[in-house]
Every structure is written in structure tokens, then in C-alpha cells.
Design a protein around this nucleic acid. Structure first.
Ligand SMILES: [Mn+2]
Ligand SMILES: [Mn+2]
Ligand SMILES: [Zn+2]
Ligand SMILES: [Zn+2]
Lengths: 151, 151
DNA sequence: GCTTTATTGCGAGCTTCTCGCAATTGAGAT
DNA sequence: ATCTCAATTGCGAGAAGCTCGCAATAAAGC
């Protein structure tokens, strides 16, 4: 299914279809926002011989081919990887429970239009990360521990 | 001037005003988007005894106090530091010349309003990074080397 | 099957950032 | 002005995340 999609993308660009690449692909396609290390762990549940370097190399290749996207969801921490999705699909991360959700808004399209038309800036990628407290966590947090945005 | 602002923030929170902190502060206040290493280099032009660890410790403290902001402008690379500014002030980075510009739009305010009102998400921080080609670089690039956004 | 060469596992190594600890120093008290 | 003492610093070691060189392996075309 999605595996065919990978085979075509690799073959079309003259790259080989290998065990490590298929394994990494199925993990990335199955769960978004994992780190390379986490992906490697899941891959090794099935095939313990796959090396972490190969996970990194597969991810880099997929990113070059436009199949996956690398995001820094925590500054200074490891990158998170997922299937490529439109920029409009942005990230909301809860500081309390760590959950990362996707949210779709027309806002990103609008800023792209503005920058393109009024500033001559050719947009290639948009990364929007909103950090805060999700609705569940905000209910269970003590009100005093609820910081507000600077205005 | 801005040094007084730092003295008050530090003193008010029971922290000491020290040479390394003042030095780091003046660099960060003078030039935005430097890395810790770059800040250390500039600091050492004046005082070669300041250690890189102290630069990191100063920056972390300033961030805790809400005085500076840490951004990951390149995934996987070092963090960039700058005086805290409103989330509405977002980043445009040119892939070709590396220049980082600020741009202000009401778009961020709008998404914050939407998430707050319709999704019960308490927004604490927004990071928006637009990557592409600035107007100068897009003029001088060969048209064939001008990738377009996936739609 | 055989050949070619892209890919892999492995280890070493690089970059960015953190930490423990002894020496130093800021700031309030005298 | 000096004293006191915890906060801070410089320094070295080291952790975490990622990259690279190289010999061994294994896709893909013939
Ligand atoms: Mn995502
Ligand atoms: Mn900025
Ligand atoms: Zn939550
Ligand atoms: Zn440019």
C-alpha cells in the first residue's frame, strides 16, 4: 500500500529498496513525531540488526525525496520525524502532557500569500509550532500554575 | 539603559549582577539570532576570560526570566538567541543567503484567538518560521533552481 | 548466477550543550 | 571599609544527538 509508494519513489530516483528502508518507512508511516532513536527501537523489535546510522540515513534520504518532514518540537532536543504533510497542517504541543496534535488552518496559506505577493519572498516551507496547555491539561492544572501569554 | 532593565530583572529575582551576565546581555541585545558560540566569541573580544559554560548559563537564566528567546532556526543545528519579542514577530529565513528577518502579522494573533476560543488550548508560545528565498536571492537564482511549494 | 556498486553495520569522532567541583566574587551585614 | 557566605564562575569531563570512513554485504541489471 504505502509501501508501493515508497518503492516507486526510491526506484524512480535510482535508489535501492532495502530492508532497513522499508522498516523505517513503516514505522514513520505508522506513528508521527517519533525521534530517530525511537524509530530505531521499534525497527529493532522486528529486525535487531538494523543500525541507528541506517535509520538516520534512511530518514535523510526520505526527507530529500520529500517523503518525510523533520521538525524540532523541542528546542535543543532531538528532531522528530513524520510523513510529509502540507505546511497548513501545523503543530500544537502541550507542555504538560507532551502530546502533539495537528491542526489545520487557512492562516498559513494566508501568510504565504502575503509574503509571496507583497514581499517577493518565495516560500518553500512553513513551520508553525504552538506550545501551551491542551484542554484536558488546562482543566486539571491549578489556576495559579497557569501562566498567561505576554501581550 | 537596557542594562538597567537587566539589573532590575536580576535583582528583583534574587540573582546577582555579574560581569559575564552583563557582557552576554549586551551582545544579545545588540545582535539578534546569534548562537551561544557566536555570543561567546564576541564577549571574549572584550573579556577573554569568560567561559562558554557561563554564556550558556546566562542565556538559560535570561530565558527563565522571560528576557530572551531561544529559537531553532536550523533543525539539528545550534539554537539561536535574541531578546524576547512578541510571538507575532515571526521569522523568515532565506535558504540561499541565510539571512533571518522579522516580520509582523496579525495572523499569529488570529490563530491564538481561534485555539483559545474554539479548542480550549491555552497558548503560551508561538514559533513560526518561514523558509524560502528572499526577494534578492530569488532574483539572482536560476529559474530551474527555483523549487516550488508542494500543493 | 555473476557483476557492479549502492547500502549497511560498526566504530570513531564531531558538535552542541550540561554538570560537578574547587576557586572566585557580589552584596548584604557589621 | 571589611567581613561573611552563598551565588556564580572557569575548567575539565562527559552526555546526547548526529555524521562519517571503511570494509563487508546485498540489491538490481545482465
Ligand atoms: Mn506533524
Ligand atoms: Mn527573532
Ligand atoms: Zn496536555
Ligand atoms: Zn537571500
Amino acid at each position: 500500500m504505502t509501501t508501493e509508494w515508497l518503492r516507486d519513489s526510491l526506484g524512480g530516483a535510482g535508489h535501492r529498496v532495502t530492508g532497513p528502508r522499508l522498516a523505517v518507512w513503516s514505522v514513520v508511516a505508522g506513528t508521527p513525531h517519533l525521534t530517530a532513536e525511537e524509530i530505531a527501537q521499534v525497527v529493532r523489535d522486528t529486525d535487531p540488526t538494523v543500525n541507528l546510522s541506517s535509520v538516520y540515513r534512511s530518514l535523510s534520504l526520505f526527507a530529500e525525496l520529500g517523503l518525510v518532514r523533520e521538525s524540532s518540537l523541542d528546542t535543543g532536543g532531538p528532531s522528530h520525524w513524520e510523513l510529509a504533510h502540507a505546511d497548513e497542517q501545523f503543530h500544537m504541543r502541550c507542555r504538560s502532557c507532551g502530546k502533539v496534535e495537528h491542526h489545520h488552518g487557512d492562516l498559513v496559506e494566508r501568510v504565504v500569500g502575503h509574503l509571496t505577493n507583497d514581499h517577493g519572498f518565495i516560500v518553500e516551507q512553513v513551520d508553525l509550532l504552538v506550545t501551551g496547555l491542551c484542554s484536558e491539561c488546562s482543566r486539571s492544572q491549578s489556576p495559579s500554575a497557569r501562566p498567561s501569554r505576554s501581550r
